[in-house]
Nucleic acid binder design. Structure first.
Lengths: 157, 157
DNA sequence: CACAATAATATTGTTCACAATATTATTGTG
DNA sequence: CACAATAATATTGTGAACAATATTATTGTG
């Protein structure tokens, strides 16, 4: 009774993509004021998460991890350079590349960012199990959409 | 073993929101060329889905259903008016409201849009059961995020 | 009826996200 | 080594999203 055959395929309630779209917007809206205190937007926060793990990165390596391209990242990284969180320097070994590194200011921001997940979680009434389940399912979809069919076992066994 | 306690809370792989963000971007990227043939963007497509179901709508009613506000919808609807898919007229009964209706051109687009879901599904290798499961889980999250706690029983209790 | 309070939409300014294209550097083939 | 092919990043132009604010219309209270 949930087959795509019966009913209108153009019904908003049938769409898979709409809830994802809505959830993404709503989450961004929830993150915004929290991250604003750190002087970050959500995609900028994602860049910092990567850089806090491993540095330096290139525009391309950031794009691979965040599923974004230079058209989005270049201006974003320039803004982050302006606010003093990162540095952008041409790779001497390969002048095509731009190395992205954290500055002292960017490194200092880490401790303040550490309770962002907790603050956010406090604003959402959902238990940890559901969250993990949801995360893994969406991750499976991302893998499929990105063509990493190796990781495409959303709910299989 | 999946508790938020162990490990770094700022690890990209632990984030719930990132997969949702990535999935939303990737899906939009997938929709874009398909909808471009109809002269639509994804949010414009969502507006048409609503209007094909029930008309007229107001800016506010569309916003309620799509979780968007006038700051996003007003310019979007103006563009759709320009392309001739919808009409925007002040409600005579309440001049604050703007009634959004489909034009003949917008109505004619419906049949062409009917196979969008199928074309899209063809591009994603995922079974219907997983999709439905994912959809319902994300829908649960949307309900929580939006404060509709009535529908917030993703897996609670 | 006056007029504050509220409601619905519009505007402004900033930051993404993207396709298409341009620019510059490196690699590969002869 | 020349020079086409490729790779990495940047630029351009369009369309969202959003917070904050402005504008206009209606409602409610006296």
């Amino acid at each position: 009774m949930d087959l795509p055959e019966d009913g209108d395929p153009l019904d908003l309630d049938r769409q898979v993509c709409f809830p994802l779209y809505a959830a993404s917007n709503l989450l961004n809206r929830l993150y915004r004021p929290i991250l604003a205190e750190l002087g970050l937007t959500y995609p900028q926060y994602l860049v910092m998460l990567v850089l806090w793990k491993q540095t330096p990165q290139t525009v391309g390596s950031l794009g691979d991890m965040l599923y974004l391209d230079s058209g989005t990242l270049t201006p974003l990284l320039k803004r982050m350079e302006t606010t003093g969180l990162i540095s952008r320097t041409r790779d001497a070994g390969d002048e095509r590349r731009v190395l992205i590194d954290v500055t002292a200011k960017g490194r200092a921001l880490r401790s303040a960012a550490e309770n962002v997940p907790a603050v956010l979680a406090a604003g959402i009434e959902i238990d940890a199990t559901s969250v993990a389940q949801l995360r893994d399912q969406v991750r499976g979809l991302v893998a499929i959409l990105h063509g990493d069919s190796k990781n495409a076992d959303t709910a299989s066994s």
